[in-house]
Every structure is written in C-alpha cells, then in structure tokens.
Nucleic acid binder design. Structure first.
Lengths: 139, 139
DNA sequence: ACGTCTCTTGACGTTAACGTAAAGCCATTC
DNA sequence: GAATGGCTTTACGTTAACGTCAAGAGACGT
C-alpha cells in the first residue's frame, strides 16, 4: 500500500535506458540476477532491478562472468552481518584483478611483438620468402 | 626421389614438440591449415608443416582467428608476385594491432576502475549498504 | 595367434551469453 | 470486430576451437 505507485519501468524502457535487448533482461531474470515484478504477465522493473542491472553491467566490464556476478550480488542481499562473505568477495575481486593484469601483460607483449613484425614489412606471420617482396609491399 | 628420406615427424612427435594435442593437429588439417603427408593412413608432418604450425601458434598469440591465419598463410603460398595481397596482409595485421590496443586500453580502464573499488573496501560491485560493513571487511 | 601400442575416422559434447523465430495473450484503436 | 502493437513463453540456433568417446586398422613383439 505504501508503494502502490512505486516507480517502475517496462522492459522496453529498461532496454532503452541501459542499451540492452529484451532477451538480455529475460535471460538475466532466468539466471536469477534480476527479479522484476509482474502485472498480469508483463514485467515491471523496480528501482532495485535498475540498481542491480547497473552493477551487472559494471561487473561485465570487469570481466566477471554472470554466475560470479550473481554470487556477489547475492552476498549483499543476505544478512549484512555475514562479514566473512564480504571478505571473500574481496578476494574474488582481487583474483579477478590479477587475472586482468595478467591478460593485459600478455596483450602488451603480443602488441609489442606484432609491432616489431610490422616494422619489418608485410611478413606479419614471419613468412620467409624474399626480402624484396617485403620492400615492394612497403611501396 | 630426391626427398625419399625427407625428415618428417609423427603426430606424437609434433605434439611433444609444439605442446598441442593430436586433436588440434587433425583439426588444423581439417581446416586446411596443415597438409601432412600420408604413409598408409598415418600422418607425417613435414618441415613445411612445422613452419606453418609455428606461424599458426604465433598468429594465435596475436589473437588472430584460425580462419584469418589460414588466409594469411595461403597468400604466402600463392605466387610471390601478388604483391597486392601482401599489402592487404599488412592492413589486416594493422587492424588487428589496433584491435589489440583498444582491448588493452579498455582493460586498463577496467583495472584502474576495479583498483579504485578495492581501495574502498569490499564493495566491489558498488553495493551501497552501510559504510561500517566495508570498514569491518577491511578488518 | 595374441596382446599392446599408436594411430585412424567419425561423430557428438562443451561453454557463454545471448539471437532468433514461432505462436499466442491482451489492450487499444479504428 | 479486426487489425495493430507490445509483450509473453518455449525452444532451437549460434560461435570457436577443440574435448571426448567409440570402434577399428596396422605393425610389432612373443
């Protein structure tokens, strides 16, 4: 009764707001990442859903998988006093950070490597052939 | 006749040399990236196959897809005089490099972002709750 | 002849995160 | 009351690069 006029969004409004497809929102609901209300058969996304979706998208940017995100999100929903869980969250995040840094370092290596190849002309994958083909390729 | 005793490797020797599985080599052959000889039904990988595999693996490190790698490899196999193709190779590689740099930049952003979150305690995905939960999580 | 080893060819399974129909309900609006 | 428009569920399709059996052939040693 207090929230009879809770401000909610239709699926389309959600999509427009967050630039996702309806399929995506339904998928997230199926995976229990979102819990929109229903009016008849229609979904109504609450403020809470919006907050969650924002976090989901941020999690994705971080490279978390949906299942990991769901777990993290669920922790916050549980009793606030389960601090042990929070520190676990912390560790998961640090692991992810380490992963990302490893990835970036590999990428950096590969980039440097590829740059080096490009410097030598068109022999990108190391094709041997003759030197003049490379020269000509450079025009 | 001249290469009756061409030095070749069995599939197992190839696998050990390049740290790949037999499945992988057969897969590459199916995708026309490798062309091992046959003796009866057995595969014999020639020097050429070894060179190609080396380039394939390098290509993968660069983030090329197998199909792209196949195309690049094929160019080198065609007439040496098709210089136009070579410069196309060059462009493909430059595009890939640009992709990789974009990826890395995004990753850098995400990393910085995540680091920032970690600085603020356990609220990794931005969970709001109370400040003390985060404090306690920091111990 | 028998067992063992290495290799072969199918051919289906895996994973993530949705895409893409197909078919139907409900509320307007003409 | 028919056509629309928006939404629904169900369910199969997609993609890459292999993994993972299953069943069988060939060679080799005893």
């Amino acid at each position: 009764m207090t929230d009879e006029f809770e401000d909610t969004l239709s699926i389309r409004e959600m999509c427009d707001t967050f630039e996702v497809t309806p399929r995506t929102l339904r998928f997230y609901e199926a995976k229990e990442l979102l819990f929109p209300h229903r009016v008849g058969t229609r979904r109504l996304f609450t403020r809470r859903d919006r907050a969650r979706l924002k976090l989901i998208l941020r999690g994705k940017r971080f490279g978390f998988q949906l299942e990991e995100i769901r777990q993290l999100l669920d922790m916050y929903d549980r009793d606030d006093s389960q601090i042990a869980q929070l520190s676990k969250t912390y560790e998961i995040a640090k692991d992810r950070l380490a992963d990302m840094e490893r990835q970036r370092d590999e990428l950096d290596e590969a980039i440097a490597d590829l740059r080096e190849q490009l410097k030598w002309g068109a022999r990108v994958l190391g094709a041997q052939k003759t030197a003049h083909t490379a020269d000509q390729a450079r025009k």
